[in-house]
Design a protein around this nucleic acid. Structure first.
Lengths: 183, 183
DNA sequence: CAATAGGTAGACAGAGTGGTCTACTTTGCA
DNA sequence: TGCAAAGTAGACCACTCTGTCTACCTATTG
């Protein structure tokens, strides 16, 4: 029984991330997953409910990857290298667990839902905060200013990688971050 | 005759930017503008055509604002201050010509259209390149590395301002940029 | 075995989509 | 004035959307 729900969710996440939430209707998810509509509505109250679940699943997946990426960093410098190396891997489709790169699911979904009070928008914001917390927890030497810089550079790199198809966006952002450590 | 087209375009841009391209159907644009459907299709071949026109209009508007913002900078430092001050104004809804802040229309639209070969996606990318060119043209002292940093910080600040509702995103990015000028 | 839970194919419903078209009116210009 | 261009309200079309529901099947458990 739990398998059907999981299968639905994974299919939905994949389609949503690849094409956008509004561009994918539930009939497409059903067709792709081979699961009946009633089953979908048995597990999820609505499409929005499914979107939230997809966001949760992606958040879990991304944060797990990110956490393991930064784990064990011995210095801020090492953590910085790991982070941007990881981002570069992601941008260039070398992280199996994260699917093919199509920008950030949370930025994309946030763009599709303009109401900041919508639980979907709120969920996207929470993801960003969670990532920031993860980075902060791996800063060997606490540095609030550097943390802000890293978060800004990370988002900027993601956007440039996706919108501008800049394969070197992570490397450029890393070069910038390297200059900040000496300050 | 040209006024109807302009009125349609402005209405469409406003609705698209505020709510998202796919969330706004042409019937809503017609209702809001008070213009007949046949007139819309007289001026624009399709909805996609209207979206492209809206992107063009926004590009023009934004680049004009951005250009005048940076114009006359006497140093890289001054240009940097101007840029991030301007971004802060924008994020906090103090730029009349740019409507209420809802992230970047090009990032948002790019998120909604996943096919990188779609003219819409291409147009979004072109906007980013054009902005980069404007920044470069106002760098008093040429510095390729600094240019890349500025572009990354700018995109990052926009995302944090929108997704995370961080009203200080521009200030934080500016603080980061300030540290880079001394390098 | 019976009841419950989970699942199936697919019909149905109302609302909405982007685009085409009819019949008519208004505007602009020679 | 007459004609072409621009514009109007709105009907129509095929299709899609999300969600509800029917009738039935399968699996599990007491």
């Amino acid at each position: 029984m739990i398998d059907k729900r999981q299968h639905l969710l994974e299919t939905a996440l994949q389609l949503f991330y690849r094409n956008g939430v509004q561009a994918v209707g539930i009939n497409e998810i059903l067709k792709t997953s081979g699961i009946a509509k009633k089953t979908l509505y048995h597990h999820f109250a609505s499409k929005d409910d499914l979107v939230i679940a997809a966001l949760n699943a992606r958040d879990e997946k991304f944060c797990n990857w990110f956490e393991s990426l930064l784990k064990g960093s011995k210095s801020n410098s090492e953590m910085t290298e790991r982070m941007f190396d990881g981002l570069s891997q992601w941008f260039n489709n070398k992280v199996d667990s994260l699917d093919g790169f199509r920008g950030c699911f949370f930025i994309n979904t946030s763009a599709e839902f303009s109401d900041a009070n919508n639980p979907i928008s709120i969920r996207c914001k929470e993801h960003k905060q969670r990532i920031k917390t993860i980075i902060a927890s791996h800063l060997v030497k606490a540095d609030e200013s550097y943390l802000e810089s890293l978060c800004t550079l990370k988002e900027g790199a993601i956007v440039l990688a996706y919108v501008c198809d800049d394969k070197q966006a992570a490397e450029k952002a890393r070069d910038t971050a390297r200059k900040l450590i000496n300050n």
